[in-house]
Nucleic acid binder design. Sequence first.
RNA 1: GCGAAAGUGGCGGAACUGGCAGACGCGCUGGACUUAGGAUCCAGUGGCCUUGCGCCGUGCGGGUUCGAGUCCCGCCUUUCGCACCA
Length: 848
Amino acid sequence: MPYAPKEIEPKWQQRWAEARVAEVDVTAPGEKLYMLNMFPYPSGDLHVGHGRNYILGDALYRYFRMQGRAALNPMGWDAFGLPAENAAIKRGTHPREWTLANISRMKAQFLRWGILYDWSKEIASCEPEYYRWNQWLFLQLYKRGLAYRGMAPVNWCPSDQTVLANEQVVDGRCERCGTEVVQRELEQWFLKITDYADRLDAGLDRLVHWPEKVKLMQRNWIGKSVGVDVDFFVPSLGRPIRIFTTRPDTIYGATFMVLAPEHPDVPALLEGAAGREEIEQWIAAVTNQTALERQEAGKEGRFTGKVAINPFTNEEIPILLGNFVLMQYGTGAIMAVPAHDERDFEFAKALGLPVRVVVKAAGQRTPDASELTGAYTAKDESAVIVNSPLIDGLTPPRAIEKIIGEIERRGIGKGIVRYRLRDWLISRQRYWGTPIPILYCDRCGIVPVPEEQLPVELPLDVPFTGREGNPLAKHEAFVRAKCPRCGGPARRETDTMDTFVDSSWYFCRFVSAHDDEKIFDSDIVNRWLPVDQYIGGIEHAILHLLYARFVTRAFYDMGMVDFEEPFTRLFNQGPITKEGFRDPSDNMAWVPLGEVEMRDGEPVRKGSGVKLVSEVGKMSKSRFNVVPPDELIEKYGADTERVYTLFIAPPEKEAAWSDEGVVGAYRFLVRVWNMGEQIAAAPKAAGAAPSALLRKLHQTIDAVTRRIERFEFNTAISALMELSNALGEALGERAPGLREVYETLLQLLHPFAPHITEEMWSRLGHEEMILLSRWPVADRAMMQEEVVTIVVQVNGKLRGHVEVPHPPEEERVLAAVRQNEKVQQWVAGKEVVRTVYVPGKLVNVVVR
RNA sequence: GCGAAAGUGGCGGAACUGGCAGACGCGCUGGACUUAGGAUCCAGUGGCCUUGCGCCGUGCGGGUUCGAGUCCCGCCUUUCGCACCA
């Protein structure tokens, strides 16, 4: 019977489901292992790029199971979010219907891939049973002052009609739709993640099993910088303006001060200033620019006509306004040291401001300010401070220490650690999300919804008319409420929460998925968490992972969990790309290379003459170059997709999908199948397998085991292909003892190709599933060769081989080399300087 | 600009601590079986030539070493991340 994945795959998928093989009793004692794939947004159909993530996790899960470990592998749905609402507006469905339909489609797809999840713990963040705990979490944070309502300049996406978190703005554009984000001054809800900046930064050091890249991105995002606040007295105001600097060692070189145009002291400084009107117009213009425009404009500034006193030189230095100084960072004011800061230098050149050198390279003469073509910014031991009476001759690190001490002694400032990280803005002016459990009472002000009134349910009877703001705000019955404090009329908050709140703690919920008394059971969570192995895309390096780390620490501080880091090991799989072309007239149309012809050097769609646009992109729905897994499974089966996906490249790397490449994986499985048929049909022959094959077998067991542990799935599979090739040869030679070898091959292959291996395992007479069999253990002794072939080099060049019995003892090897004629021929007539022996590998004879 | 990672056949990629470069797979070439092959099987496949126990070959240029894809120094290129953060 030929290999027919279409018949065997559904059969085994059903058997695994019926046997509930993946269900874990979290209250049972024993060693725990919690692995987790990031739960998906149910956007619709899955493509092979998704597949990589989940297939990888499933292979690992099956391997752990076969190792006999009680692995928990749950799955759920990040089910709130904008696309559902947009689909509702576009197609007239309800976001909930759209989302639930997608969930069931995607669940069916997981099943078709043969992926095993513990569905008894399934969660969907759009259900009140889940989001009520979002609301509960919010109230706890509110109680502790970690959730607050504040007026702040926020990022507004005009297309999505909502505010965004800083983390959701990429290059000044909305991460989701690419629209340029504008700044608006709005009153919104924030979570005080900045309170945790220091702990989030310090904690990264302990995450030894996280990719360095992710840690670095988080470190940069948190942006810790150690510096000092210093007051510069301003005579015209009769009080000082405070600046922040990380280089107080250069303070003698501060020849002017620059304020952000939005700085609160600006109006007072402009009192009676010459050209005040022009300056105010300029401020207005700069303020209206996006961050991007502001940067592209180059360095611009205006003189205020006022001065400040440099507290160390006692000189009067001019105060300017500059478009490059950000109000959001530090104090919104800087001391400018043009000689030793690139930006200050540029600004000074543009406006003709004085430059003073106060740092020089150690052992070199001090350059004249006029010689400088750029700023000299060295701040390590290679530099020396000059022209600075108090700290002359010191290296920058020593000078910084001394000058901060002096600033603090004089009471004009203090050392301070600042962070780039800003508070997490969670308000969204959208419908499909968790309602923020807050009431506004005319008499009592902001009143949190009492916990016993949770959940504040999201009403479903809401019309979706399009872009006229949040439909929730128009739902009278929802908005109108009674104040729980005074009983008077109150208005309900109609903003919903950022969906990243949902995903900031969902990993805790899986082990208490159906608890309707509390957010989770601390005992169970403390037993099962942190997650031992977390798998997901690098795109969450900052957003989700940072928020999850923050919320976990908040739980920790509330005494709810006894760990601060939610994910012990993190693995980021790379994206899958596919080469092809895009039809510019129809964004939905991705044209595979096979349907493209070149005409006059331009890609054109075959038969139509439509010019195409080159596109090699990350495979994601929004880029429209998607390989649908359904077709693939229809043609080759899920096992082929699984094997190919894992074989294509190292899993952390970007991988280019190739339709031809899939065939190789398929052929491999066909060969495995045909060998199984042959072995099942043959009578059980007595005798052991050839020793070379047994050696290969045990080497393969060893290699596959090691490689799975190291996420080297591509080479694990290639090792299995080698074993299969060797087994094929032995079969051709009608060698005995091949059944055992084949069965072990099936076990090793199971995590990658579960269906075909279950089928063949059962055909060979096993009653129990291969999934429940025990992972083979390599016999070290069997891995050794009886005869070891040693490579012999003379002066590093290959000059022959010698064979010695195992173990290859040095004396025996060297004796064999001395007797080897070929090698002696190269040594003859020369003096042997040295003999290098690398045990078990080679001998190098050095001659002169 | 700053930071990180990576450069190996026609392609995806192997090579553990320096030790036979190119495993495994795709593609390609030839053959077998075929009415047919885009199925299957077999053989070959880094380059060069004088076809040998040959020479060259892991982005470029140096270095260390008996020996370098691997280590060191200097370039070049690509990808990713950050980007006026004082």
